[in-house]
Design a protein around this nucleic acid. Sequence first.
DNA 1: CTGTTAGCGCATTCAA
DNA 2: TTGAATGCGCTAACAG
Lengths: 331, 331
Amino acid sequence: MAALAGVSIKTVSRVIRGEGGVSAELAARVSSAAAMLDYRHNLAASTLRRHGQKTAAIGLVLMDVANPYAAALHRAVEDFAHERGTLVFAVSSDEDPVRQRELLNALLSRRVDGLIVVPAGSDHGMLLHEHRRGTPIVFVDRKPATTEVDSVTVDNRDGARKAVEHLAAHGHRRIAYLGDLRTIWTAAERYAGYVEGLARAGITLDPALICADLHSAAAAEAAAADLLHRKDRPTALFSAQNLVTVGLLRAQQKLGLQSDIAVVGFDDLPLAELLHPALTAVVQNPAAVGRTAAEILFSRLDGAHHPPQHEVISTRLLMRGSGEVPPAVAH
Amino acid sequence: MAALAGVSIKTVSRVIRGEGGVSAELAARVSSAAAMLDYRHNLAASTLRRHGQKTAAIGLVLMDVANPYAAALHRAVEDFAHERGTLVFAVSSDEDPVRQRELLNALLSRRVDGLIVVPAGSDHGMLLHEHRRGTPIVFVDRKPATTEVDSVTVDNRDGARKAVEHLAAHGHRRIAYLGDLRTIWTAAERYAGYVEGLARAGITLDPALICADLHSAAAAEAAAADLLHRKDRPTALFSAQNLVTVGLLRAQQKLGLQSDIAVVGFDDLPLAELLHPALTAVVQNPAAVGRTAAEILFSRLDGAHHPPQHEVISTRLLMRGSGEVPPAVAH
DNA sequence: CTGTTAGCGCATTCAA
DNA sequence: TTGAATGCGCTAACAG
């Protein structure tokens, strides 16, 4: 192509990258030759040679790209990255540390400039190692054991506490907890918030009302059905997760109890407002989480050296009806 | 690192890639040197030199990665790609041809091995050009004007027809259509299916019952409210899209008509089964679409030379209640 | 303003 | 079984 334009390869490089310092005539010749040959700049080769070694790609490790929360976060990251000419590799770890490790290796082999990670499992060894090695990393959604890496999390505990206190304020004393795997940081935090909420309301925790480790809507439905079949059933349910809420609502409907048992869910769902009663929920702001994480990551890519940042995004209790149902009279 | 292990650079390469033909002792020396230096294989450099030029990355151009349908498709593609050691760049075009062009350039500069694209706009010039140039491309969700590129689409027309015929079978004659931008292929097809369905049921199309170009839930809500406020309002509504369904249901609820007007939506929604009545919907199978597209793309990457494939995934009508509401008596 | 030379990190010859 | 040279596509550092 340099031959076709009758210039040196370096001149071509200058024109392609818009470096300037090339006469208009030559630039035009190069451009038309490029068009003729259907030339396309190879960013990988460019990156290889260049000093700053930027691939203009980042990795985003989520639990599941199809999860609505994760997808919203992804979009926020993408938007921020797009403004910086950066592409995003989004991958699903499925909460599996082995798969996460594979994915991180794949990402790192491609020399991504940085990583935003919802860490799976509790062993962050590889991530920490990579971070110390110089790869900018931002932990998201789950606070890591260590404090040396930037993180963006949600105030899960506060959200759960608000939910429980709200139910208590409406007269409930028997408030059940249904939640995801306790090994997941967010679930553990929400459980802690539940416990705190009960304490603040002066309610003694009843272990019989705790259903943890529900990792699917089906499991949640079964657990909720069990709770609601009891004679001394709870008058209110706090669901600590999306899919759990779905299962719980199914069980409640099958028993025809949708207007008799109060429900507050953590995380919103599409159509939640159209249920009867509409779902009262602690809503997160995944877009804010994603944007904040991207902001931090890119500031690091730009060379920011301040100590690790730990942003916490707050939640909001959206009262829509299901959480304001008064306690049913005992039967 | 070759120095540290005391071997040649080539031996290192062999060990790293697991090529074999290296003595156990040397291999061990290389491995430990690699561990010591925290060496990581650079896939970009490898790709550059290699002949087959595979970056083990593909591009996935969606309308919006946060859209539940797109996210499910994304996940299916990711799973297939993951088995092949391939990473996915998923990007959001926002239906904007300009943005799509930018994204395609970014993807192509990074030498992705292939592309799965939900094409925005109707000018597929760049995509066709790239395809002729040798980049494997699979069109997804929307059938392109040309037939020379592989495609995977959904039988939108059939799905919409089934929905309308279903409503007609339940006695409805005044069936309204609410749909997205007609410039979007799927919306146009669904509209065509609506028209066909009416024809088959022997119903004359009433232009007053057509609300097209609704590109948000809010727009759909307004349109539906308008329809339902009329004296000669429709007895049934067919919503041709996700967000449109949400808007329509809102309007219906605000007017307290949820049990009086039949509704069938195209696309399912979480919680749809828990509404009263539960939502009858034409459900697609985004996972099947994504998997099929990935299958085709990878078969091309493996060198398959058969003529363009055009897969069509069928839909299913899920009767849950809202579509089986009988026509209300005229008022 | 433009061209030459060298080399990024790796793999592919070809030799030893 | 191992190693030396060569070059992928591009750019930084120098010339001219």
